[in-house]
């Protein structure tokens, strides 16, 4: 049984009080540039998923509390939550530092592009 805590309203409850919403930080390419979305980009958006054995980042919804979507960092082996954070936010830097493989690449890229902007 997972114990989840909503970072928006602060409600804490078991997994049945919340709704698991899949992988976090998936961006819809057509939102920013609808005229130039390739088949590969659309495939990645719809189907390709980071599926790590270890630290993972995902979306949850506070079903029986405030109803807001938020983010969580969770280990898919130990099932331990490392952080809960807002839907527009990035994870805390110490959790980003623990990310491996495709997630590490993703955050490196994301931090670089936000730095430029």
């Amino acid at each position: 049984m997972l114990v989840v805590k909503c970072p928006v309203c602060g409600a804490e409850g078991d997994e049945t009080d919340f709704h698991a919403g899949g992988q976090a930080h998936v961006r819809r390419p057509a939102t920013t540039d609808p005229a130039h979305v390739t088949d590969e980009e659309q495939r990645d958006y719809l189907f390709i998923r980071i599926n790590p054995k270890g630290l993972h980042f995902e979306r949850w919804r506070c079903d029986r509390g405030c109803g807001k979507w938020f983010h969580a960092a969770r280990d898919t082996v130990t099932m331990e939550f490392k952080a809960f954070y807002g839907i527009t936010e990035l994870p805390p830097m110490d959790v980003i530092a623990q990310a491996k493989g495709q997630w590490a690449e993703y955050f490196e890229h994301r931090l670089k592009s936000e730095h430029k902007a």
Binding site: L2, E15, H19, A20, N51, K53, H56, E58, R74, T76, V77, T78, M79
Partner: peptide
């Protein structure tokens, strides 16, 4: 299935 990822 469970609604979330799990390798355990």
């Amino acid at each position: 299935t469970d609604p979330y990822k799990n390798y355990s």
